[in-house]
Amino acid sequence: MYKILDKVDYSDDVYMQVIEAPAVAAAAQPGQFIVLRIHEEGERIPLTIADFDREAGTITIVVQAVGKSTRHLQKLGKGDSIANFIGPLGLPSEIEKVGTVICAGGGVGVAPVYPIARALKEAGNKVISIVAARNESLLLWEDKMREVSDELIVTTDDGSCGRHCLVTEPLKELCEAGGIDLIYAIGPGIMMKFCCKTTKEYGVKTIVSLNSIMVDGTGMCGACRVSVGGETKFVCVDGPEFDGHQVDFDLLMSRQRQYLSQEKESLDLYVECGGDKRCMT
């Protein structure tokens, strides 16, 4: 069992948990992910590592509740435990000194960008961060991002905070101005797709972190396959980071929707039963 040491709700749907997992924390690096399972009947869900503390032996995750498992996890707080917590999985980000790097995070995608931005900064890069969300209530980790960035831009789709625009607007301006050596863009599929579309014109290498459906997360099942440069890759062992200009985002998003009807059925039943497992059998 893995203990939840801390939990913070950021909004009705988004929350942060700090999980005690010393072996995972000892090995964790920016860009990697974990797989967790809440209980014996639970599914295995992959989540990108938002932060890690090797000394405290903890991993931080930031989750957007969408289906049954993430709703259930949301109900668990400090002192509760989850059955399984496996990681760190996937290949770590390649952190090097390249010059000026843009780190753009959309929605909960800001969380996994954070350790990457921090590492890039520590490696001596100039870090320009863009923190984007649909509205102010969904903005997160603005302060943490500011600490590790030379420059921070906030955007909201509705203008409730920061600039009233999509993440692609400042991205385009920065590319236009030139001097950008590398871009990280992490967030929902549609956000990454359009970020890559924007940066491709300028030929600036753009790395994305893909969040496909997985079961084991160690290469065994192939559920997470994506098309990169026309070749099939497994996100869990070949990624999760890829050259965004090579990724087939439409396929990624289509595959993410595979279980929508079952996910709805499961969530409806969960809500109907008030989370009581016995009524689901």
Binding site: E43, R44, K68, V215, D216, C221, Q258, S266, L269
Partner: peptide, 19 residues
């Protein structure tokens, strides 16, 4: 793996779906 390890054949009692 979905069916055996994750017991998707008993969905929705078990959370893992299978087509």
């Amino acid at each position: 793996t979905r069916s055996n390890l994750m017991k998707a054949y008993r969905f929705p009692e078990y959370d893992t779906p299978i087509k």
